[in-house]
Design a protein around this nucleic acid. Structure first.
Length: 606
DNA sequence: ATAGGGTTAG
């Protein structure tokens, strides 16, 4: 029966583990694997070999000419490396199996060829099997493959890159001189992914100096480095490089260009590229929508989302993150709720990125209880989830709840970061918890090894200042190890305003103007301080000076959302279609208020 | 037969 199956060219290929057992038994009996057997090992059997590796290894042991099995071994290793997915458990075993088979090959005299080692290395990279990969690194040096076969070099670099070992990637890259475009791209990509985009760009220039021409994949990676750096000048150079060197502007290149231009603050070319793309996919839309949101162009981002929907293209999680982020910043609760309903309807889990941005959206739109419900329902809470709800609760004056949730973090094994402490300190500040705030500030460095930034110092000055401890606030600024910035002086000036400290305020205003000379913040705060101290003449003088200096105004803007349409209102803005009626109504309210309370009690700015 | 690509928060 075995002989029939193994010998006859008419028999069906072996497909199951049972067939493998039969071959195994036959080989043990005859010490021979008839050559027609090899083509009969179907892909399905090769796949099942991952679960029956011991049989394969035994077969190898019993063969008279094991080297005939090189192709079989290569295809088993290839199958192992292409089937193992990155998952929590079991994957390590698969790469281990690839390595076991590889060792058996060596022991039994199957000489690996150019394809074997890259396949085994790929299996290691996919399952992050660093230890096994390092053994292969040693083998590659000894056998000479590392220097003779650029695929070995590149797959080894890839393994170290996915394990985050930048130094090892550099070392393998630098070894010998057999590097090609893939080696360069892998190196640059590794720099960018590990948070060193500057090094990535420099490596690209090195590559150009080495007379190596880039292709689509390389420019995409370098563009992403420019995007992360916000380096428009290098980004533009790269755009020129693409045109001059005949790099094919495929959809990947187009998307990377859109992302680069938007993150570098130049929206026009991004839109132009988007409009002129012959093929667009969901990533093109995502790059545009999240890029616009990143630029603060939230309304534009939402407009593009609506346009995307008209094309019938389904948004994915990344689209929705950009959309919810825009809703959050515009305060569009109804729009945000609609997205939440869309998420539920499409069975997308309100977890991870999506959950976090939902929490933030509800908190920023004033619906703190909805934010809390989403937070509670999340299974995978991380530092972003906790920070979003803590900052949200702090902004809503719910200091006690914010601090309670903060105290949950260590129990869940989640370490707070710098932004979490902004929320914690804001909570303390709003609730007047001076002692607690001081303790948290101290813990930041002592317990969590987080170096406080100027924003944290600003929170502390705000905390002391609001509570009336102006002297302590001043002392605190004097002892700062870093240069105080606008957030710090602004907090102190705010405290002067609350407590009517005119003279101190005048000095603080000068300091604030030094670090922020072309913004109107200092003037506005100070003139308010004068007004509240009844120094009207000084207030008017300051307002006049402000007008003359043509300063950058912090835009005061309110918006409402009616039936999905956003209406924005700015001070003095008459662009609304119904502005005449609106102003007439406002005039009515004003005169009503005046007759009820008198002008001194109520000032409405229109 | 084998290697390198873009978009996501507080």
């Amino acid at each position: 029966m075995f002989a029939a199956r193994l010998g006859s060219s008419n028999s069906k290929p072996a497909t199951t583990a049972r067939h493998l057992h039969q071959i195994h038994a036959f080989v043990i009996k005859t010490k021979l694997l008839p050559s027609p057997t090899l083509p009969m090992l179907s892909p399905k059997l090769v796949a099942s070999a991952s679960e029956n590796l011991s049989h394969v290894c035994h077969i190898l042991k019993h063969l008279e000419n094991p080297d005939l099995c090189l192709d079989l071994c290569n295809s088993i290793v290839r199958t192992l490396s292409s089937t193992c997915k990155i998952s929590s458990n079991g994957n390590h075993l698969i790469s281990l199996q690839a390595l076991v088979l590889f060792q058996e090959m060596l022991v039994n005299g199957v000489v690996p060829d150019n394809y074997t080692v890259p396949h085994v290395l790929k299996a290691c990279a996919q399952s992050r099997a660093l230890g096994e990969g390092m053994q292969l690194h040693a083998y590659s040096i000894k056998s000479g493959f590392l220097l003779s076969n650029v695929y070995v070099k590149n797959t080894l670099m890839r393994l170290y890159a996915v394990c985050g070992l930048v130094n090892s990637v550099e070392a393998v890259f630098a070894e010998g001189c057999n590097r090609d475009l893939v080696s360069w791209t892998t190196l640059i990509q590794c720099y960018v992914k590990m948070g060193f985009p500057r090094e990535g760009v420099m490596a690209f220039f090195d590559m150009c100096n080495a007379k190596q021409k880039a292709d689509e994949m390389t420019v995409v990676v370098v563009l992403s480095a420019c995007s992360r750096l916000g380096d428009l000048s290098v980004g533009r150079k790269l755009h020129g490089y693409i045109r001059d060197n005949g790099v094919n502007s495929d959809v990947f290149v187009g998307n990377a260009l859109i992302d680069m231009y938007l993150n570098c603050g130049d929206a026009d070319p991004a839109r132009k590229i988007f409009d002129e793309m012959p093929v667009r996919n969901v990533v093109s839309w995502n790059s545009l929508i999240s890029g616009l949101a990143h630029q603060g162009e939230f309304k534009e981002a939402l407009k593009m989302f609506q346009k995307m929907q008209r094309t019938g293209l389904e948004p994915d999680n990344i689209t929705l993150v950009g959309v919810l982020n825009s809703c959050a910043n515009l305060g569009l609760l109804e729009f945000g709720k609609w997205v939440h309903a869309y998420i539920d309807k499409n069975h997308i889990e309100a977890d991870g990125y999506i959950g976090n941005v939902l929490v933030d959206m509800y908190a920023k739109c004033g619906s703190i209880e909805a934010a809390y419900r989403v937070f509670q329902g999340m299974k995978q809470k991380d530092v972003y989830s906790f920070t979003a709800i803590i900052v949200g609760l702090a902004m809503h004056g719910e200091a006690k709840r914010a601090l309670e949730i903060f105290s949950e973090m260590p129990k869940m094994g989640i370490k707070p970061d710098e932004v979490t402490f902004i929320g914690v300190l804001t909570a303390c500040s709003h609730a007047g918890l001076v002692v607690e705030g001081k303790n948290f500030f101290r813990d930041m460095e002592c317990v969590y090894s987080l170096r406080p930034q100027t924003e944290h110092y600003g929170c502390m000055v705000d905390l002391f200042g609001r509570a009336g401890f102006i002297d302590e606030a001043e002392k605190f600024i004097k002892n700062m190890p870093i240069e105080p910035d606008a957030s710090v002086w602004g907090a102190l000036l705010g405290a002067c305003k609350i407590h009517g400290k005119v003279e101190l305020g005048e000095g603080v205003m000068k300091k604030l103007l030094k670090v922020e000379p072309d913004r109107d913040g200092a003037y506005v705060l100070m003139s308010n301080l004068y007004s509240s101290a009844n120094k009207w003449r000084d207030a008017v003088k300051l307002r006049k000076a402000m007008k003359e200096k043509n300063m950058k105004k912090t835009p005061g803007c309110s918006s409402i959302e009616i039936d999905g349409v956003v209406y924005e209102f700015r001070k003095g803005d008459k662009s609304n279609r119904k502005s005449k009626e609106i102003y007439k109504l406002l005039e009515g309210i004003r005169s009503l208020l005046n007759s009820s309370f008198g002008t001194d009690d109520c000032i409405i700015l229109i």
